[in-house]
């Protein structure tokens, strides 16, 4: 017998605090698998955000820094500038990255900081109890958009991947999803590509991952996966938003 699937070494044995069915766990595992496959566990420094994944440092078996809300890209900039040859990544949610930290992520990308951001978009604030996020889709109910997000008063969702893909400092920007096994495999491939480009010293890379929040969406875990496919993907189309020019040819 050979083992075809097991817990990656870059994850600790800690049980996560995530709600049942929350796909943060899948995304953590994908990052850990990529770290293992690239053999960089002892060379990697991660930055955890404020939000549901604030405790990510308990789950990754690597050196980590916990950043202030939204500031992970600034913290990662400091780390990468001190250790240009280490692998540095931030793990951030939509409130952290697309709201309070939108300035930090835009400028890190514009400067072409050579780290990778894993951006988990579940269209809601999870940790604080289900408030509207910058990525909440139109009509989506939340604790602070109880009648559904109304563009007249609450504006429109931000498409982070497309926005950052306009910046020259960003070399790889992709949006993936984890709502079925095939997409999980694609998500992992994108994360691996992002890390590989970082290791090659190419520039800033970001993978936006559509993720579920059964607790705050008010659906079961399996219904939530369907909601990603039916409701989120039409607003947030999957795919590579910015490839390297030389890779295209």
């Amino acid at each position: 017998m050979i083992t075809v699937f097991e817990r990656p070494a870059a994850l600790t044995s800690a049980k996560t605090h995530y709600c049942p069915g929350c796909t943060h766990g899948i995304i953590h595992r994908l990052v850990a698998e990529v770290i293992d496959e690239l053999g960089i566990r002892e060379e990697t420094i991660g930055v955890s955000p404020v939000g549901c994944s604030v405790l990510a440092y308990n789950y990754f078996n690597i050196d980590m820094q916990e950043a202030a809300h939204g500031r992970a890209p600034a913290v990662a900039t400091g780390i990468k500038r001190v250790f240009p040859r280490k692998v540095v990544f931030t793990y951030q949610g939509d409130g952290d990255l697309a709201s309070i930290g939108i300035g930090e992520i835009v400028h890190a990308a514009a400067r072409g900081e050579k780290f990778t951001t894993i951006f988990v978009n579940n269209a809601i604030y999870g940790m604080t109890g289900g408030q509207m996020a910058p990525t909440t889709i139109l009509g989506q109910e939340s604790m602070t958009s109880p009648d559904g997000r109304n563009p007249a008063t609450q504006g429109y969702p931000i498409r982070v991947a497309e926005m950052l893909a306009t910046l020259e400092g960003a070399v790889y920007i992709a949006r993936v999803s984890v709502h079925n096994p095939q997409e999980v495999a694609r998500a992992k491939k994108a994360i691996k590509t992002a890390f590989e480009l970082q290791i090659a010293g190419k520039g800033f890379s970001l993978v936006e991952v559509l993720s579920s929040c059964p607790t705050n969406w008010g659906y079961t875990p399996t219904e939530s996966l369907k909601w990603i496919a039916d409701k989120m993907i039409p607003v947030y189309p999957l795919g590579v938003k910015k490839p390297l020019e030389e890779e295209k040819s």
Binding site: I2, V4, F5, E6, Y18, I26, V178, N180, P181
Partner: peptide, 21 residues
């Protein structure tokens, strides 16, 4: 059939999958 779909989708890394060599 050791397809690993269950493991790949498990948010809590509960599942180990093996197959015949």
């Amino acid at each position: 059939i050791s397809c690993s779909f269950c493991a790949r989708m498990c948010p809590d890394v509960v599942i180990t999958v093996r197959k015949e060599e």
